[in-house]
C-alpha cells in the first residue's frame, strides 16, 4: 500500500520533471523561431486582435469597478484617520503597483490564455499542425510564435488600461460621488506616485506576466492529448497554472523591486 503510494509519487515527480524539460525546450524553440512573427508582423497583429482587442471589454469594465470599490473602501478607512485627501494616493498606488498588473493578468489568463490553449489544442487534435508540418511550414514559427508575441505585447497595454480605468473609477466615486477635494486628490497622487518606481515597474511586471501566461497557454495547447477531454483538461490547467504563476511571480518581482531602496 505504502509502496504503491511511493511509486505513484515517484512516477508523478518524474513525469513532472520530464514535462518541465519539454516545456523549457518548447519555450526556447518559440524564441528561436520568432523571426517570422516579426518579419511578417501581420500575423502577430492578427493574433493581437484575438488576445488583446477581444480582452478589452472585460479589462476596461473590471478596471472601472475595481477602482470604484477602492474609492469606496479607501474612503471609509481613510476617513477614520481624517486623511480623505490621501484617497488618490491609495487608489493610484494600489492599482499601479499591484492590482493593475495582477488582476489584468488573471483576467487575461482566463480570457485569452484559455482561448489560446483551446485553439492550439484543437488545431493539434484535428491534425492541422501535422498538416502544416507536412506542408513544410514550421507550426512553431507560423502558429505559436505570433501568438506568443501578441500576448507579450498586449499584456502591458491591457494592464495600463486597467490601471487608468481604475484611477478614473476611484476619481468618480471619491471626487464626484463622495466629494473629496479634487485638487488634493490629484495633487497628492502625483506627488506620491513615481514614474520610474511605480509605473515603469508595474509595466515591467505585466510584461513578465504576459510572457508567463502566453508561454503556459501555448505549451498546454501544444502538449494537450488530441482528444476532447485532453483539450478541456489542458484549458483548465492553463487557467490554474498561469494564475498561480502570476501570483508567485508577483511576489518575487515585488520583493525585487520595492525592497531595499535605501
Amino acid at each position: 500500500m505504502l509502496k504503491r503510494a511511493l511509486e505513484n509519487l515517484g512516477n508523478r515527480t518524474i513525469q513532472g520533471v520530464w514535462r518541465m524539460g519539454f516545456a523549457t525546450r518548447f519555450f526556447f524553440a518559440v524564441l528561436m523561431h520568432s523571426g517570422t512573427a516579426f518579419r511578417r508582423f501581420g500575423l502577430t497583429i492578427r493574433e493581437m486582435y484575438f488576445t488583446g482587442v477581444l480582452s478589452l471589454i472585460i479589462i476596461l469594465v473590471s478596471g472601472l469597478f475595481v477602482g470604484m470599490v477602492l474609492g469606496l473602501q479607501g474612503y471609509e478607512t481613510l476617513q477614520t484617520y481624517g486623511s480623505e485627501e490621501a484617497l488618490g494616493v491609495l487608489v493610484a498606488l494600489s492599482l499601479v503597483r499591484e492590482l493593475g498588473p495582477v488582476v489584468a493578468a488573471l483576467l487575461f489568463a482566463s480570457r485569452a490564455g484559455s482561448a489560446i490553449t483551446a485553439e492550439i489544442g484543437l488545431m493539434k487534435a484535428t491534425e492541422q499542425l501535422s498538416a502544416m508540418e507536412m506542408m513544410a511550414v514550421d507550426p512553431i514559427a507560423r502558429v505559436v510564435a505570433p501568438r506568443f508575441w501578441a500576448g507579450v505585447i498586449s499584456m502591458p497595454l491591457l494592464a495600463a488600461l486597467f490601471s487608468a480605468m481604475g484611477v478614473l473609477g476611484g476619481y468618480l466615486v471619491g471626487v464626484q460621488l463622495i466629494g473629496v477635494d479634487e485638487g488634493s486628490f490629484w495633487a497628492q497622487m502625483q506627488s506620491a506616485v513615481d514614474f520610474e518606481q511605480d509605473i515603469l515597474n508595474g509595466v515591467l511586471k505585466s510584461a513578465v506576466f504576459g510572457v508567463a501566461i502566453t508561454a503556459i497557454a501555448l505549451f498546454e495547447g501544444y502538449d494537450a492529448p488530441p482528444t476532447a477531454e485532453g483539450v478541456s483538461g489542458a484549458t483548465t490547467r492553463t487557467v490554474v497554472t498561469s494564475s498561480l504563476a502570476v501570483l508567485a511571480l508577483d511576489f518575487v518581482l515585488t520583493a525585487f523591486m520595492f525592497r531595499g531602496l535605501n
Binding site: A164, V167, M189, S191, I199
Partner: peptide, 14 residues
C-alpha cells in the same frame, strides 16, 4: 493609458 498614468497619475519628477 500609459501616458495618462505617467503624466496625470504620477509625475515625472525623477
Amino acid at each position: 493609458a500609459l501616458l495618462f498614468l505617467a503624466l496625470k497619475v504620477g509625475s515625472m519628477n525623477t
